[in-house]
Write a protein that binds this DNA or RNA. Structure first.
Length: 196
DNA sequence: TGCAAACCATAAC
DNA sequence: GTTATGGTTTGCA
């Protein structure tokens, strides 16, 4: 049985769907309804689930981490994401995205270069990211460092990136699989925005 | 700048 | 099987 929990912390609702294997989906947003429908849309249709009013200790803990991520803080914990139900390519893209460190971002095209496939395919996977904000799809932008899109609205994407500013100056390369993923300081995108 | 065409994995039919 | 759909990219005027 998959259990869904949601909880409001400050201005946002955070929610997760999990069982004892791990996390099936996570989400955050302004309204509880939005978060819950979003999460349930990512669940396998043939698996029963139940929405709980009170979060368990484990769930509360994970939700607290989601809030920390939203606040732009470093969260050093291993989230047990259940990825196996997704196509192999989708898994590769999600894993690569998960490796982007705070303070950096990359482009749809860079991910495509690192894991194969094309930029549009990567964009599609970002658009349906079941693990926001654990898999930081807000750290993926266009090749010209324009914002691209964001499920929760571009305002939120900007908000997150601003909080993640760490003052890094130069791009660097990450090892993903047998290839490399180029990442850039978030300032590369923020500098184009008003009042950065 | 702006536009058109190429690109590519998925999901929906 | 086929088609439609993008959170893209690149090239060219």
């Amino acid at each position: 049985m998959i259990e869904i929990y949601s909880q409001k912390i400050d201005a946002y609702w955070f929610g997760i769907a999990c069982d004892n294997h791990g996390i099936f989906a996570s989400s955050f947003g302004v309204t509880q309804e939005r978060v819950l429908t979003n999460i349930s849309s990512y669940l396998p249709f043939n698996v029963p689930f139940q929405v709980f009013h009170e979060a368990s200790a484990v769930a509360k803990n994970i939700i607290a981490s989601l809030k920390s991520i939203y606040d732009g803080q470093e969260v050093s914990r291993n989230f047990p994401l259940v990825l196996t139900r997704f196509p192999a390519y989708t898994q590769k893209v999600l894993k690569a995205t998960a490796q982007i460190p705070i303070g950096y971002l990359t482009t749809y095209g860079s991910i495509a270069k690192a894991v194969g496939g094309g930029p549009r395919a990567v964009g599609n996977i970002m658009a349906t990211n079941p693990f926001a904000p654990i898999v930081p799809c807000h750290r993926v932008v266009k090749s010209d460092f324009g914002l691209g899109g964001y499920g929760g609205g571009l305002k939120v994407k900007i908000e997150l990136l601003r909080k993640e500013k760490r003052g890094f100056l130069t791009p660097k390369k990450l090892e993903v699989g047998s290839n490399q993923l180029q990442v850039f300081p978030v300032e590369y995108t923020l500098r184009f925005l008003p009042c950065h």
